[in-house]
Design a protein around this nucleic acid. Structure first.
Length: 578
DNA sequence: GCCGTTTTCGGCCCGACTGTTTTCAGTCG
């Protein structure tokens, strides 16, 4: 069942943007934004709710409930469609550029008739922006930087969004009669942080029904190519999806081939050639006779080449073949190994769900422990106080034991200030079971200052985990320009874990940094940073990223039993390394 | 547009930073 929540959330967000662009009531725009967020993170599928049920979602009142109901019934909301007519679509696109908000986007459109990113680039190069009120050379520079960040993603979409659509397609095609196997392959199966296009494979004798079903899926906007072996479509969101139907006995060869990466496959084929064999998407063959050796499963193909099966997340030609040949592939962490989440939020700060709901959802995931880590006072907009935090601690203590075997931990996400200080003095921090500390502002300090700042946070005895260490947001904000080797060294020295934040916008640390950090002997924490019950599921992307960094359960503190985790937290409070 | 132990009006997450300005608007977290 596909949730309609995301669609409705996007529509309401669009209307909020349109209101902001056209200079409507800012509070009204914010109300729509808030409702969009609440609906997107609401655990119940809104399609099952009547207007009264919708109004129980915080931030949804009479007017928005009516519009959502209308949208669910007819697929249209005339008021929003009218508003859409008044603003060229490119203007909203401009708002996606970091540093450009609704006001500046509208000025660019009204004064320079700019309504797309390309037109904006043209205007900057002709130095047209400098004459505009509120713009200058620095803004040109920062806009260019923002556009470069966006374009570096090169039309690729984030892992989470790609996974959503791929899983829907796989579920739909698996229901077509004659389906003997259906899976996504490509960079998505390898869990890369961004995805260019989605590859879906089906094993079936007769491709026809699948090709037809594929072109008729509700999210298919345009059929790019339609043949007997391959069909390509563009989805309503502009993402290309390729479907290949393989004969069932070629399944393993096809899956191996289309999973890639290209560099990994080249290495594997070299091994085949050295053994007088040939590997293609149809199977493994004798080079001379052309006779097929095997093609049914990936395991058989790798085995016939003298290799163990290599997990897709390792298939990047980063030494996995050599390690496999030596029998030294790591025993990668799996999602089932995760015993708890150590970085999550509730509606006490910017989360959507109350403590009880978050804890119940965590327990349903089978966790043995679960940490609530709401924001601390220095993130001013969250309005945290000592009293609120202590009251929450009381509630956490009272609820502990009510979720089966799952234990509740009370923590916080501290802010690492410009000097590396955190929100509270040691006496107060000592009351938490654990503290995550993260950078939330002052991203553009000098490398020297940033490095010192992060190291000082590591050296705080009460800081156990550095949250989203580089603070990058994929395609939006570059990583901090710090000397991360020095930070990794400090983490190892002080017994501070580095977070692998599973939010698809972040995936921070990323795979390359994980590989580097591991060499210093650092431990990691894979967290969801959930702000809603559903976001607890982002753990899978964190685990995928950890796998891409070659991590085992032993490297990751939240795969450990609670006792060992507590020992790590205690040790860290003793070792300041100073 | 939402919300309510301030309850049908009048608030709404608030402060800092940035680049522009010559006193501040826009953007961000």
């Amino acid at each position: 069942m596909v949730r309609r929540n995301e669609e409705a959330a996007q529509l309401l967000q669009e209307y909020a943007d349109l209101l902001a662009i056209t200079g409507g009531d800012a509070f009204k725009a914010r109300a729509y934004e808030k409702a969009a967020r609440a609906i997107g993170g609401h655990p119940t599928d809104i399609a099952t709710l009547d207007p009264a049920g919708l109004r129980e979602i915080p931030g949804v009142g009479r007017s928005i409930a009516e519009k959502v109901t209308e949208y669910l019934r007819t697929g249209h909301v005339p008021l929003i469609e009218e508003a859409r007519q008044t603003v060229p679509p490119g203007v909203r696109e401009l708002m996606a550029i970091p540093g450009l908000g609704p006001k500046k986007a509208m000025v660019l459109h009204q004064e320079l008739q700019v309504s797309s990113v390309d037109e904006l680039l043209g205007a900057i190069h002709r130095e047209r922006l400098r004459d505009l009120r509120g713009f200058g050379p620095k803004s040109e520079e920062s806009i260019l930087r923002g556009i470069a960040m966006m374009q570096k993603a090169g039309g690729r979409i984030l892992l989470g969004a790609a996974m959503d659509i791929a899983e829907r397609i796989v579920a739909d095609l698996a229901g077509v009669t004659g389906c003997e196997g259906c899976a996504y392959a490509g960079s998505l199966r390898r869990m890369r942080e961004t995805i260019g296009d989605i590859d879906v494979l089906v094993a079936a004798g007769d491709p026809g029904p699948f090709m037809t079903a594929f072109t008729e899926l509700p999210y298919t906007a345009e059929v790019i190519a339609h043949g007997p072996k391959k069909t390509s479509v563009r989805t309503t969101k502009g993402l290309q999806v390729d479907l290949r139907v393989l004969p069932p006995d070629s399944w393993g060869a096809g899956l191996q081939y289309f999973t890639g990466s290209k560099a990994h496959n080249i290495r594997v084929r070299e091994i085949a050639v050295r053994q007088k064999m040939k590997l293609s998407e149809y199977g493994l063959f004798h080079a001379r006779s052309g006779k097929k050796i095997t093609s049914g499963t990936e395991e058989e193909i790798y085995a016939r080449l003298g290799l163990p099966w290599i997990p897709p997340t390792l298939r990047e030609d980063r030494g996995e073949i050599a390690a496999a040949l030596r029998g030294e592939l790591p025993r990668l962490v799996a999602e089932e190994d995760i015993r708890g989440d150590l970085h999550t939020h509730t509606d006490l700060t910017d989360g959507l769900a109350p403590l009880e709901d978050m804890a119940a959802a965590a327990a349903a995931r089978g966790y043995s422990y679960y940490a609530v880590t709401d924001h601390a006072p220095d993130l001013v907009m969250q309005r945290m106080t000592d009293e609120k935090m202590l009251a929450q601690r009381e509630r956490v203590r009272a609820l502990d034991g009510r979720y089966g075997r799952m234990r509740l931990l009370h923590g916080t996400e501290l802010n690492i200030g410009p000097d590396g200080d955190v929100d509270w003095p040691p006496e107060f921090l000592a009351g938490f079971d654990l503290c995550v500390a993260s950078v939330h502002s002052h991203f553009r300090q000098s490398p020297r200052e940033l490095t010192r700042r992060l190291i000082r946070a590591c050296e705080n005895p009460y800081v156990s985990i550095i949250g989203h260490p580089t603070t990058r947001r994929i395609g939006r904000r570059p990583p901090l320009d710090a000397d991360f080797d020095a930070v990794f060294e400090a983490c190892a020295r002080t017994g501070t874990a580095l977070e692998i934040n599973g939010h698809p916008d972040r995936l921070d640390l990323g795979d390359e940094d994980i590989l580097r950090a591991k060499r210093y002997g650092v431990k990691f924490a894979v967290d969801s940073d959930a702000h809603a019950t559903l976001h607890l599921a982002h753990m899978r992307f964190g685990v995928g990223t950890a796998q891409r960094g070659w991590l085992t359960g032993d490297d990751i503190i939240n795969t450990w039993p609670l006792q060992r985790l507590r020992r790590f937290l205690r040790e860290g409070r003793r070792r300041t390394g100073g």
